[in-house]
Amino acid sequence: MDAILAGIKSLFDTLGATVMLPIIIFIIAVVLGAKPGRAFRAAVTIGVAFVGINLVIGLLWDTLTEVAQAIVTNTGIRRDVVDVGWPSAAAIAFGSSVGLWVIPIALIVNIVLLVTRLTRTLNVDVWNFWHFAFIGSLIVALTGNLGYGLIGAAVAAALALFFADWTAKAVQSFYKLPGISIPHLTSAPIVPIAIVVNWIIERIPGLKDIDINTDTIQKRFGVFGEPVVLGLVIGLVLGLIGFYNLTGG
Rank of each mutant, 00 (worst) to 15 (best):
residue 1 M to T: 11
residue 5 L to H: 07
residue 10 S to Q: 13
residue 13 D to K: 12
residue 13 D to S: 13
residue 16 G to I: 06
residue 18 T to I: 15
residue 18 T to K: 01
residue 20 M to K: 03
residue 21 L to N: 00
residue 26 F to M: 00
residue 27 I to G: 00
residue 28 I to H: 00
residue 29 A to C: 07
residue 30 V to M: 04
residue 30 V to H: 01
residue 32 L to H: 02
residue 32 L to C: 04
residue 37 G to N: 01
residue 38 R to Y: 01
residue 39 A to L: 00
residue 40 F to C: 00
residue 42 A to N: 02
residue 43 A to V: 00
residue 48 V to A: 00
residue 48 V to T: 01
residue 49 A to W: 01
residue 51 V to M: 13
residue 52 G to Q: 06
residue 54 N to H: 12
residue 56 V to I: 15
residue 57 I to K: 07
residue 60 L to C: 05
residue 60 L to D: 09
residue 63 T to V: 11
residue 67 V to L: 12
residue 70 A to F: 03
residue 71 I to C: 04
residue 74 N to Q: 10
residue 75 T to Q: 02
residue 75 T to H: 03
residue 79 R to A: 13
residue 80 D to F: 09
residue 81 V to N: 08
residue 82 V to F: 12
residue 84 V to F: 14
residue 86 W to M: 12
residue 87 P to V: 10
residue 88 S to L: 14
residue 90 A to C: 08
residue 92 I to N: 07
residue 95 G to M: 10
residue 99 G to Y: 02
residue 100 L to N: 11
residue 103 I to P: 01
residue 103 I to F: 13
residue 109 V to D: 02
residue 113 L to R: 14
residue 114 L to F: 09
residue 115 V to Q: 06
residue 116 T to R: 15
residue 117 R to F: 05
residue 120 R to L: 04
residue 120 R to C: 04
residue 124 V to D: 01
residue 129 F to R: 07
residue 129 F to G: 05
residue 130 W to R: 07
residue 130 W to E: 05
residue 130 W to I: 06
residue 132 F to Y: 15
residue 134 F to M: 15
residue 135 I to A: 14
residue 140 V to K: 03
residue 140 V to Y: 09
residue 140 V to F: 09
residue 141 A to N: 11
residue 142 L to T: 10
residue 143 T to A: 09
residue 143 T to Y: 01
residue 149 G to K: 10
residue 151 I to A: 13
residue 154 A to P: 11
residue 155 V to Y: 06
residue 155 V to K: 07
residue 157 A to F: 03
residue 158 A to Q: 09
residue 158 A to K: 09
residue 161 L to N: 01
residue 163 F to G: 12
residue 164 A to T: 06
residue 164 A to K: 06
residue 165 D to R: 07
residue 165 D to M: 10
residue 166 W to H: 11
residue 167 T to W: 02
residue 167 T to C: 11
residue 167 T to F: 05
residue 168 A to D: 09
residue 168 A to Q: 10
residue 168 A to M: 08
residue 170 A to N: 08
residue 171 V to M: 14
residue 172 Q to P: 04
residue 173 S to T: 13
residue 179 G to Y: 09
residue 180 I to H: 02
residue 181 S to L: 08
residue 188 A to W: 08
residue 190 I to E: 08
residue 190 I to N: 10
residue 192 P to E: 04
residue 194 A to V: 14
residue 195 I to E: 11
residue 196 V to I: 15
residue 196 V to E: 06
residue 201 I to P: 02
residue 203 R to T: 07
residue 204 I to G: 08
residue 205 P to Q: 10
residue 207 L to K: 07
residue 207 L to Q: 06
residue 208 K to H: 09
residue 208 K to G: 01
residue 212 I to R: 05
residue 217 I to P: 02
residue 218 Q to R: 14
residue 218 Q to D: 04
residue 219 K to H: 11
residue 224 F to G: 07
residue 225 G to K: 11
residue 225 G to D: 10
residue 225 G to A: 09
residue 226 E to I: 03
residue 228 V to Q: 11
residue 228 V to D: 08
residue 229 V to M: 13
residue 230 L to I: 15
residue 230 L to M: 15
residue 236 L to T: 12
residue 237 V to H: 07
residue 238 L to R: 03
residue 239 G to E: 10
residue 240 L to R: 03
residue 248 G to Q: 05
